[in-house]
Design a protein around this nucleic acid. Structure first.
Length: 578
DNA sequence: GTTAGGG
DNA sequence: CCCTAAC
């Protein structure tokens, strides 16, 4: 008999011809799915916001930050500092204005004393959505917003690039000085947005110092961090069939329904130390703070009598969060998102990690003294508290259908992006242009990176059905990262070589180190490149792709899509026959 | 896990 | 960029 066999590689005009690679897979027609997102799926920022706020803010003595509330994994016997904090709060701080959050429906605007307002270009924008109507003590100061959130600038969205440090200060009766920390401080002061939230006595302050970077958002955090994505993917996205290595989030980005659920990172059990460090609570032992008398039960081995350590958690940092919000959304909506972000940082579901002089202390049974925390070294700034994900149930996002509030929030879409405080080495791939390119009918959005912990808590929602949970769980969209010309070049070259059906190979070949580019991304980009190449230059958007590249795109596309024409196997091509 | 294609 | 279906 005669065997017919095609050899492995072909080559022609620089194209390498893999076996059976040219003929595109037969087109598959799919039925057009109705939008499956029901009303129930819609989640509004206010849901979580209010819920979380209710959960955490005003428990017990009405302390704004209810550190005192037991957090998962925290045992009374070890959280000395927790108690301390509590005591300090109760001793030093006046209670907040009580806020009534209806138990049956916590979602309806009772965020009074914990609202954000903003001053944009010197103008106070008061939202009318019951957000900061706390008895006249408006609570926000936004300095130097720098730019308006003006709609319709060529379709460009305004990017508020916040590498914020939400700093929550506790335990000071004096006016809270929000410490500048981390990237915030190093970023320069211009165009910062400071959002303060506080009660009448300013006992609490959330601080966000984003930078308005419509021009050069170079400090966008990486979203595609491989490590994170792997964790996420492995833990929660088994069912998804997406880019397996990068599937921490789901898409609930409902263009047409204009309802954008808050997307938050869930927390994951084995988040690494380095991650949890992002949630570090820095505490400084300070002399002169009030006596903390809550070492009960632990005093056994605690050095000499009366040797109390005075701790004060002065602040902690939280990582970033992105809020994508249309320019047409209200200021109140934005504030709500910020609010939600902050709240989510503070609510429970986490445990506290402790580091002493850089070393993690895992043994909860140790005394402070044994651990090296003593009166003598309280002056050392050697204690780090971190918020770590509790190891129990995974984080589930839930929401309740919320008709009318959703209407007030035509579009709100929060996406917690990457690990914060990540290096900026990927930031270059996040050019400003990335936020434009929307059709006239497409609402521009504003990306506001905010602080948010991917340890975001479980909102105390009445999660009823598992399906709901799943839907809520899905809530993260990767940030848009337009391809640079260089990337396009690399892509084109790879496709020329490998063809249009081997995206994984393309990825490996040309984008191996680009964690944020999955092979699906590459495939998608190629798709758009082909389209771009076919339309007139006037219709093109974004950073112009050199015509030469587009020509190559068309060539390669035509070449690889035509199963017969356009290629004349040369060298190693051998079809064995007869 | 990959690939293709619609949204 | 996301999602699903088909491999």
């Amino acid at each position: 008999m005669v065997s017919h066999k095609c050899v492995e590689e072909f080559e022609y005009k620089g194209y390498q011809l893999p076996p059976n690679a040219r003929a595109p897979r037969s087109a598959r027609k799919r039925r057009s799915f109705e939008k499956k997102i029901s009303e129930d799926d819609q989640m509004c920022a206010i849901d979580l916001l209010a819920t979380v706020a209710q959960n955490m803010l005003f428990e017990n003595e009405g302390s704004l930050m209810s550190i005192d509330k037991p957090v998962n994994g925290i045992e009374d016997d070890r959280v000395v500092t927790r108690t301390s904090v509590k005591e300090e709060i109760s001793m030093e701080e006046k209670p907040l204005n009580p806020v009534t959050l209806p138990v049956d429906n916590p979602y309806h605007g009772s965020m009074s004393t914990f609202g954000f307002s903003s001053v944009i270009n010197g103008k106070v924008e008061n939202e009318a959505e019951g957000f900061s109507n706390s008895g006249g003590s408006d609570s926000c100061q936004v300095e130097n917003f720098g730019e308006d959130l003006k709609p319709g600038i060529d379709g460009d969205a305004v990017v508020l690039d916040a590498r914020p440090n939400v700093v929550v200060s506790l335990g000071s009766s004096s006016r809270t000085k929000v410490p500048s920390m981390g990237t915030c401080a190093s970023r320069g002061a211009q165009d910062d947005v400071n959002l303060f939230s506080r009660d009448d006595d300013e006992n609490f302050s959330g601080y966000i110092c984003p930078r308005v970077t419509k021009k050069s958002p170079r400090s966008v955090p990486r979203i595609g961090d491989r490590r994170i994505r792997k964790i996420l993917a492995s833990r929660h996205w088994k069912g998804g069939s997406r880019h397996s290595d990068a599937k921490p989030w789901r898409n609930y980005y409902l263009h047409h329904q204009r309802s954008y659920p808050i997307k938050r990172k869930r927390h994951f059990d084995h988040i690494s130390d380095s991650i949890s460090e992002d949630y570090r609570m820095r505490s400084k032992m300070q002399r002169g703070s009030r006596t903390v008398s809550s070492m009960k039960g632990q005093g056994a081995s605690f050095v000499s009598s009366g040797s109390h350590v005075r701790l004060r958690i002065k602040s902690f940092r939280v990582p970033e969060l992105f809020v994508e919000i249309p320019e047409t959304a209200t200021v109140g909506s934005l504030k709500r998102m910020v609010m939600e972000a902050v709240n989510s940082l503070l609510s429970d579901g986490h445990r506290v990690g402790l580091m002493v002089q850089g070393k993690k202390v895992r043994d909860d049974s140790k005394t402070l003294h044994q651990t090296g925390i003593s009166q003598e070294n309280t002056h050392l700034n050697c204690l780090d508290f971190s918020l770590e994900p509790s190891s129990d149930t995974p984080q589930l996002l839930t929401s309740n259908p919320l008709g009318h509030i959703c209407e007030e929030l035509p579009m709100c879409h929060t996406s917690s992006m990457d690990k914060v405080f990540k290096s900026d080495h990927d930031a270059a791939l996040f050019p400003a242009e990335s936020f434009g390119k929307k059709t006239a009918t497409d609402d521009s959005k504003v990306l506001v990176p905010l602080a948010l912990s991917e340890l975001s808590p479980r909102p105390p929602c009445h999660k009823s059905k598992r399906s709901e949970q799943r839907q809520q769980q899905a809530a993260q969209r990767r940030i848009r990262r337009p391809f640079s010309v260089a990337e396009v070049e690399a892509l084109v070259q790879a496709v020329e070589k490998l063809g249009t059906g081997r995206w994984r190979d393309v990825k490996l070949r040309a984008f191996e180190d680009a964690d944020h580019r999955t092979y699906v991304d590459l495939k998608d980009k190629w798709k758009t490149l082909v389209h771009t190449a076919k339309i007139s230059p006037q219709q093109r958007r974004g950073e112009p792709v050199p015509q030469e590249l587009l020509n190559r795109v068309l060539n390669a596309h035509g070449y690889w899509s035509d199963p017969v024409l356009g290629r004349t196997p040369s060298t190693s091509t051998i079809c064995l026959g007869q």
